[in-house]
């Protein structure tokens, strides 16, 4: 775990790298909040919060563009190598996943607005609450892992994703039985399922971020390799 990226002769270069990292994490903080607020808006039928989540998405998109620009500028001006290059590449990949998470939060907010107009008994909300909490923590931990360049923490995030997938599958199964019981529920439950689907996607993106973190700490690409292999790579050091 190399905490301090080694110092360069050019102080400005170090500053640039620190800056882009800080900007990415700032964007991460925004996105974390978006997900949390979107879930809260849905559970509390608070369409005002939902609208704010949607409007925040524009800021997040702007941040994505400006971070990408920063990365391109660093590559062009400094021609980074080794760790620095991995950092810059990692950041420009993580930024994409963060932006997607923001999009999913926006979709959840849309469902929150739809569902707030249906006053029926909220079926499936406990699943939304549960999975929502779970993926919010995953996003937080993935970003913490990036801030600390902690490959082990990233690995545990990747493992969590498996649990979320299982929870998602079982939630959908139980919601399907509700739909079969009473077809009048279908439109409402579909909204719930889309929300769950978005949350599950957020979990996937958190896992992607974790994989990028492992890449930039360990220098090994662990996408599509399975958890066991990933754990080996992390332990190799």
């Amino acid at each position: 775990m190399e905490r301090e990226l080694q110092n360069h002769i050019s102080q400005q270069y170090d500053n640039d790298l620190d800056q882009v990292r800080a900007h990415l994490l700032e964007m991460g903080g925004r996105v974390e909040n978006q997900v949390r607020d979107a879930v809260r808006a849905l559970l509390e039928a608070d369409s005002e919060v939902a609208l704010k989540v949607k409007s925040d998405d524009d800021d997040v998109n702007d941040m994505e563009v400006s971070i990408d620009e920063e990365c391109a500028r660093i590559i062009a001006l400094r021609q980074p190598i080794a760790t620095d290059l991995r950092l810059v590449i990692g950041i420009s990949k993580i930024v994409v996943d963060l932006e997607r998470i923001g999009d999913e939060a926006g979709k959840i907010a849309t469902q929150a607005i739809n569902l707030s107009e249906m006053v029926d008994s909220p079926r499936g909300y406990s699943e939304i609450r549960h999975i929502g909490n779970h993926v919010t923590y995953m996003v937080r931990d993935a970003l913490d892992a990036f801030a600390r360049l902690d490959a082990e923490m990233a690995l545990s995030v990747a493992k969590e994703d498996k649990l979320v997938d299982q929870e998602y599958a079982s939630a959908v199964r139980s919601l399907i039985t509700f739909m079969m019981e009473d077809p009048r529920n279908i439109s409402q439950i579909l909204n719930v399922i889309w929300t769950l689907r978005s949350l599950e996607r957020v979990g996937d993106h958190a896992r992607n971020i974790a994989e990028h973190v492992i890449y930039l700490v360990k220098g090994r690409d662990v996408r599509h390799v399975g958890l066991k292999k990933m754990a080996e790579e992390v332990e190799k050091g």
């Binding site: 905490r3 301090e4 620190d18 990292r21 800080a22 994490l25 700032e26 991460g28 903080g29 925004r30 974390e32 909040n33 970003l143 913490d144 801030a147 600390r148 902690d150």
Partner: peptide
Amino acid sequence: DDTGLLLITLLRNPDFI
């Protein structure tokens, strides 16, 4: 572990930043 890190990279709440 966290000494030396920027606080805002760990406390990322937009309001706090």
